[in-house]
Each structure stands twice: as C-alpha cells, then as structure tokens.
Design a protein around this nucleic acid. Structure first.
Lengths: 185, 185
DNA sequence: GACGATACGGAACGACCGTTCCGTTTGTCA
DNA sequence: TGACAAACGGAACGGTCGTTCCGTATCGTC
C-alpha cells in the first residue's frame, strides 16, 4: 500500500469517527469525504460501501464496550459492576450517534457485520446481570435483553431531547433503581 | 366540497393513519396514496404537504393522550393515575410509529404544528407527576420531561427490538419502579 | 342532457444520495 | 530521471421521494 493511500485511509477513518458520532449513519458520504479532505472516489477505494466504513467505526466502539464488561467480570461488587457499566454504556452511546444506528439497524442492514459483536456485548451484559442477580442486587426476572433495551432506549430519548451527560446519567440511575428487587412498602 | 372529494379525504386519512402507524413518517407518500386508492395528485390537493397530512394524524393521537391525562387528574390514587397513564402511553406509542417520529421530529420540522400539543401533554404529565409526588409515590426530584423521555425511550427500544406489548409493559413497570422514592436497603 | 367548475390520476420534475467511472496526478523503483 | 502502476478527484449515473402540472374525468346545476 502506498504511503499516500495509507495516510488517506487514516484521515477517512478519523473523519468518519467524528462525523458518524455527531450525525449518525444518516450523514451523506460526501460530508465524510470532505471532512477527510478527500474525494468520494478515494473514500470508495478504501471502503467498498458506506456500510463497510460505518461498520469499521462501530465495531471498534462495540469492542471497547465488550472489553468494559470483561474487566468487570471479577469485580467484588457485582451490583456496582453492572450499574457502572451501564453508566459507561450510556455516556458512550450519548456521545456516539452511530451506536444507536448500529443497534437499531436504522436504514439498512448493518446487523450482518455487527451482529456478532452485539451478541458478544449481550453475553457480556448477561454475565454481569447474572452476577448481580446472585447477590440479589437486581430482580431475578430481568433479562440482559431488557437491560440493553432499557438503557439504549433511555439514551436515545436523552439524545434527541438534547440532554447532557449528567441528565442522561440521572435517568439511567432511575432505570437501575427500577431493576433492583422490589421491597415491601 | 364535492361529495367525491369528501370521500377521498376520508380514505386518505384512514390510509395515512394505518400506514403511518406501522411504518412511521418514513413511508413514501405514494404508498399512502395507493393504500387510499387515490393518485398522489389527489392526496396533494387535500393536504398541501406530507408534513401536513402527518400532523393531521399525529395531532389527534396526541389529543387523545392529553385527554387521558385529564381524566386522571382527580383520581383517588395519584400513583396509579400516573403509572396507568404511562402504561397507556406506552401501549399507544408502541402501536403507532408516527408518535415517535413526531416527538423526535425525525426528519423534518414537525414541531411547528405539534409543539403546542406536545406541550399540553407535558403539562398534563406534569400535573400527574406533581400529584404523585404529593403522596410520596414518586421521587421528589423527577421531572415531567424526564418521565416523558424515559417512557418514550423505553417504547422506542421496545419497538425496534420487535417486542410485544406485554414485554414493553414489563419494561415500563421497571422504569416506574425506579421512579418511586428510594427506600433504605 | 349539457355545460362549467371542481377534482382526479399519474407522468414528469428537481433535489438528494450512494456508487461508479475515467482522465489526471502522484508515489515508487530501476 | 523516466516510466508505470497505484491512487486521486469529482463529474456523472441511477434510484428514491416529495411535489407539481396538466390533460382527462366527474359532479352538480340549469
């Protein structure tokens, strides 16, 4: 690969990351190219399709989140492990519009490429949920799917309400509180 | 207005209601016209723009929800009044994709027409929340905005996860649980 | 039944966007 | 330095979708 080409590839990835983060999948590909200081033709030589570029960005994001679940597997406080992960997840999702588009498969078929990683994420969450259940920190009947939906839904709402991270965290806390085992009142 | 025209107007509204409900704002206008058994030209004589037709549908939906808050204002159990409304809201939103698009202003500027009605809804929720707070059924620090965001976010997530109403209700219940005042553990 | 106004259908227009194509430029290696 | 392969830029293509336009059909009235 020519040195020039390599540099352009970097610039495209960089531009895509920031642009997808703020505008999501719906941003026209020309904008990404312009941001990268590159023609569309060049972009398409590096990534065969918009979807491919998008996947490249999202996969690394998802991977980071999966790692976050793994580092918490052996935490001494399973409740905090789960909840702190969910807060982290929320912060990430609020800042990165593409994460929603990936999980919602909004537009076209992203799932093909990310499905595996999303499943990994789900498995990671499932472990954290299981451990939290074991210490009676969350209700025994909630599922990892529900948890993921609840948090991503909350972030989605926060995002389009234009809320900041702090407000989003507050809502996440409310949801987490709701996941705890009910107490007699 | 000619009899013919009136009938067509009805059919357009009917088709728009079902089509927007299942596919949301993103459905092409041709599909609505076809569903109504009408040409696009006819549709555009009755509604100057796609947005106008959309608003006509959504406004009635929002109005119904506002009414729902009003009938609950004098309920003897403020907690149940709020939570049952939220469940109702969720059911409605899950079944009607357009409600999301309206609240998210996804695509273009819907707000212009619906803003007033959405504010009314927010005010209605605010009253229910206030009354629930008065009897210590919800935390004193939650806001109507947060409640709306939480519920609509939950429904959004449920919708694209393809969940049924029962599963969505379960998630709503979790959120409602989280809104209750924290108890010492 | 005929005539004028009203309404209809759907082809055509224009804007947007993902993708392709090709003439031109640029890096690399001998 | 010269030459060739590799890479570039951006105009052009094709498809989608909201909207407009106009020739035709239909309703309502005299």
């Amino acid at each position: 690969m020519r040195a020039d080409a390599l540099k352009n590839r970097e610039r495209i990835l960089e531009a895509a990351e920031t642009t997808f983060a703020s505008l999501g999948l719906s941003v026209p590909i020309d904008v990404v190219a312009e941001q990268a200081g590159v023609g569309v033709g060049t972009l398409y030589r590096h990534f065969p399709t918009k979807e491919a570029l998008f996947e490249a960005i999202v996969m690394t994001r998802l991977e980071e989140l999966v790692d976050q679940t793994k580092t918490r597997i052996d935490a001494s406080d399973p409740a905090d492990a789960l909840f702190s992960f969910l807060r982290r997840f929320a912060t990430e999702a609020l800042a990165k519009a593409d994460l929603f588009d990936a999980m919602n498969a909004a537009g076209f078929d992203i799932k093909s490429g990310c499905a595996g990683m999303i499943d990994d994420l789900k498995r990671g969450i499932d472990v954290l949920v299981g451990r939290a259940k074991a210490v009676h920190a969350v209700r025994p009947d909630v599922t990892a799917d529900e948890v993921m939906s609840l948090i991503s839904g909350t972030c989605m709402a926060a995002r389009q309400a234009g809320l900041d991270d702090a407000s989003c965290q507050r809502m996440v806390d409310i949801v987490c509180e709701g996941m705890r085992p009910p107490v007699p009142r």
